[in-house]
């Protein structure tokens, strides 16, 4: 930068910022805080949405469609009808029950599956090193497998007991293993579907049937055929729709977070506007002198805008770093 340009930059932009260091730092901090809050909320929001989507999607595995109960469950007689429909390659029945834990506060989702069918639709489940043992474990009526999330939350290890309240009875299960985290992101316990029906008093009932289409089958046709089996008791959904549904459930929560982010940004923006307006007012005499020395109004505006841009740039850089760190802190917590 030439001597002359340096003099102009210092006279109109950098010098005043340095001369009023406190005000400049305050503006930078205000921008940084507003941006950091907005950014961290946005990132946490997005991480939550991604997590919800992944959790919803992971349960489907390779399934193209799912037949789900419109109410709590439907009769299992529908299962062979679904499995035999033209265009259906694999049908994997499931019973999902949210059960109260006996010795601890809270509930846990118990998912009963047909291990052989489920393996065909869930590559991660099939590819675990001891998949055969996992499958065998699922046939033991006292044993359950827990997802990594559930194991972490409930502090469970292989061999631990987990007691569940079912009506007035308490049923004890033994943890037979921990499912791979990448395949099951939800906090769940998995057990054999027959065991689940018996243990939770839901004999002959199913919550859903995941369906893999045969090669070349029309998804629309199969969907229509399946829906016609019991129009009032079942509905057909896809993994994408299930993800959307899961996201819809958290929409208001996420909307609140977004509003909070906007409030933070607006507050920061207003504060910056106020400090900049005050700074320009304070520099009125200086601008009058500069005008007398030959600085045009346009150049004065340029000085103010350049100063604001520089302040914004510093604040933004700081805000992005702070926001990313805050978001990481929030997600890891």
């Amino acid at each position: 930068m030439s001597y002359g340009s340096g003099v102009l930059l210092e006279a109109g932009v950098v010098g005043p910022m340095r001369h009023q260091l406190g005000r400049t730092l305050l503006a930078v901090i205000a921008i940084a805080l507003g941006l950091a809050l907005g950014l961290s909320i946005y990132l946490i929001n997005r991480a939550a949405a991604d997590e919800i989507s992944l959790a919803a999607r992971s349960l489907y595995g390779l399934a193209d469609l799912a037949v789900v109960a419109t109410n709590e469950d439907f009769e299992e007689e529908l299962y062979p009808l679904i499995a035999r429909k033209p265009g259906v390659s694999i049908a994997s029945p499931q019973l999902r029950v949210e059960a109260n834990l006996a010795d601890r506060r809270g509930t846990l989702a118990f998912v009963g599956v047909d291990a052989f069918r489920y393996r065909a639709l869930q590559p991660a489940f099939a590819s675990v090193a001891d998949a055969d043992r996992t499958t065998r474990t699922l046939f033991d009526p006292r044993t359950i497998l827990v997802s990594a999330a559930a194991a972490q939350t409930l502090e469970l290890r292989e061999g631990d007991a987990l007691r569940v309240q079912v009506g007035l009875d308490v049923i004890a299960f033994e943890v037979g293993g921990v499912l791979p985290a990448e395949a099951f992101r939800e906090s769940i316990a998995m057990l054999d579907i027959a065991t689940a029906q018996w243990a939770f008093g839901r004999l002959g009932r199913l919550s859903s049937v995941d369906v893999r289409l045969a090669s070349g089958a029309s998804a629309l046709d199969v969907r229509r055929e399946l829906a016609s089996l019991a129009p009032n008791r079942i509905r057909i959904t896809t993994p994408g729709e299930a993800t959307d549904e899961a996201l819809r459930l958290s929409r208001s929560y996420r909307a609140n977070l977004t509003a909070l982010a906007l409030v933070a940004l607006f507050t920061g923006g207003f504060f910056v506007y106020s400090t900049q307006a005050l700074a320009v007012l304070r520099r009125r005499r200086e601008f009058a002198v500069l005008h007398a020395l030959g600085v045009t109004r346009r150049q004065q505006l340029g000085f103010v805008l350049a100063g604001s841009a520089l302040t914004g740039l510093c604040g933004s850089a700081l805000g992005i770093m702070l926001g990313t760190w805050l978001a990481r802190l929030g997600v890891d917590a």
């Binding site: 030439s2 340009s5 102009l8 006279a11 001369h19 002198v289 020395l293």
Partner: peptide
């Protein structure tokens, strides 16, 4: 201008007139 040194205050009209 309080934020400029003596030399830079004197240099300001030159900078404005393109003497670099």
């Amino acid at each position: 201008l309080p934020h400029l040194s003596v030399a830079r205050n004197v240099a300001l009209p030159l900078a404005l007139n393109g003497v670099r």
